[in-house]
Write a protein that binds this DNA or RNA. Structure first.
Lengths: 168, 168
DNA sequence: ACATATTTTCAATAAATTTTGAAAGTTCGG
DNA sequence: CCGAACTTTCAAAATTTATTGAAAATATGT
């Protein structure tokens, strides 16, 4: 397979992959393009290579910056802004975990705390089923929260090295 | 908060949550409803409680069954089918992990294997950037695959108990 | 301050996804 | 085999989400 095809394939698959994770196709594709490109790219480079409009490109680059996955790069003597993605995949994964934890897991845990305090007699089968489910999710969610915190702090070697043994 | 409100809140939040994970709102809501309901429900019960059409309900129940999260229950002397969700959240999580691993992670690893073998001179900066990114993702992906396999085999006590210590 | 290059916004449009509901299909007791 | 109860399918409609592109805003060099 030629480089150009391989790149196309990667970008398109990364985009499809993204849609299964609540990320829009374009954002995932821009990320993919920046991941596999050695040098920083301008907005126009991205527009051209992915065949997308200026507005769309701009919005999605900004979103990637919000996620902490892409940064602006200022090249000396250039007026245009360049963009570059973090290439260390372990850092990328940790960053995504960190953001999703903050945006999704933490608010969910907050809600579960509230819902657990529902009024009513726990001898009522319906109240019991509700409270049991909510408590169960909360318990596991809290544990996941801690585990992810540890992961965010960890070095890649820890994940690739030590964890293996633990899991046998 | 009254049980009825709390249920509504839970169902609606679970649905919103689902959309961030590539799961459609209705499917997540049906799952939520079945999770917090003590007894199995019929298709009509679900339609009524969530205010959705027969077709929509039917399609999404079947999808939940495909995911292994809901099962048909036959009550003796009843013509109608009843549906019930797995209530053990640890089992639910493992089942979801198992399915997503099979549907997403494994195909992605297969693709990366192919892309890693791209033609071209690795001294070429562009070829190098591509191969390095692909290899990096593959390495981490393979590790994640192993880790998730271990998790799928594990008991909840392992996750809640032992892991804590490891993570300090 | 001006002219020009560059970036950002956002209303309109397009595309993708979800939902509906009626019709077709299936199952089951008698 | 019939008819009623129940389930499934799927084309059309509704809704949601993504994309465009031109206009407005901002930044830069002289």
């Amino acid at each position: 397979m030629k480089l150009i095809e391989a790149k196309q394939q990667f970008i398109s698959s990364w985009g499809a992959f993204g849609t299964h994770w609540g990320i829009n196709r374009t954002m995932a594709q821009i990320h993919a393009l920046l991941l596999i490109t050695a040098d920083p790219l301008t907005q126009d480079d991205i527009m051209e290579q992915l065949n997308i409009s200026r507005g769309n490109t701009n919005m999605n680059i900004r979103e990637l910056i919000n996620w902490g996955l892409v940064e602006r790069v200022l090249l000396t003597g250039e007026r245009k802004e360049y963009f570059s993605a973090e290439k260390d995949i372990w850092k990328v994964v940790k960053q995504i975990v960190k953001e999703r934890k903050k945006r999704e897991l933490e608010p969910m845990l907050k809600l579960l705390d509230q819902l657990e305090g529902v009024e009513g007699d726990k001898r009522d089968k319906n109240v019991k089923a509700f409270v049991d489910t909510v408590s169960g999710i909360k318990k596991l969610g809290k544990q996941a929260d801690k585990t992810l915190d540890a992961m965010i702090r960890a070095e890649e070697s820890w994940f690739v090295g030590n964890l293996v043994k633990i899991f046998k």
